[in-house]
Amino acid sequence: MAQATLVRPAASDTTERVERLQTTFRYIMYVVVTVFLFTPFLMTVLSSFKTSAEVIAYPPTILPSEWHPENYVQVFIANPNFFRQVFNGLVVTLLLVGLNLFFCSLVAYAFARLEFPGRNVLFAIMLGTMVIPSWVTLVPKYVLIQNLGLINTFGALLVQSYITPFGIFLMAQFFRSVPRELEEAAIVDGLGWFGVFWKIVLPVARPALLALGILAFKDHWNSYFDWLIYMQTPEMFNIQLGLAAFRGVYQNQWDLIMAGSVIAILPILILYVLGQRYFVRGVATTGLK
């Protein structure tokens, strides 16, 4: 009896010490990973307040030796289309988010809930198309958009991105998890199928719509490739393409490149801070993006 009481505290002492060691190790790893992943962003923000020479000075500085907030004005003067490009990106992004939310959830509702001939085959085909490289369909899409007279217009972006298989998949996953009772009552009440979708199903789907909306906003705001292919004049660029084009001309204007980068990432960062659990949910439920 006496022996047992003697042994016990010693044993729990070592496990406690091991546990404390593991926790310490964990926190060291946390700090290492955080520094590794976050320092570039921090340095970008700090660099955007330095002079161009100081951004690439050797030895480097961390804080600006002198703060130059006027870089954020300069960037709009050096690239006269910059404001227009921010605006373009915002308009197309918001339009596409609206179109994606409506069309993806409508189609997903049909796939998840309504019996119609060919439903399962079409859904399987849709999942299959996600593996096709966008490079295969690039030229025909370009030719089509050219023939529609949509080159260098926002229409070029709207006709090919108004719906996304990813969005349909995300919404369908959600609709499958919602109980049917609500809809059945509404159908008996004589609300048509669209009425059921619009008045009963969509309001319940708010969390999924938010997740899709936020991910779609991120994708469309960050879009570079489609704008590069279909837009030809700087006043029709978005800020991503505008920033890349600006850097192509002013390779050594590091202060302005950094300030432009901060502006280009700011809307997404704000959205992320406000709705990060929706970001995470969207990525986690589909495994995509």
């Binding site: 990973v33 962003f41 970008t44 393409l241 920033l243 590091w254 980068s261 997404i268 992320y272």
Partner: peptide, 23 residues
Amino acid sequence: FRSTWYTPSIASTVVISMIFLWI
């Protein structure tokens, strides 16, 4: 930690490219 670690994934390829041109 989860939020900070995820940040690189929300930035556009253009912004990331600008940052890495400097890195």
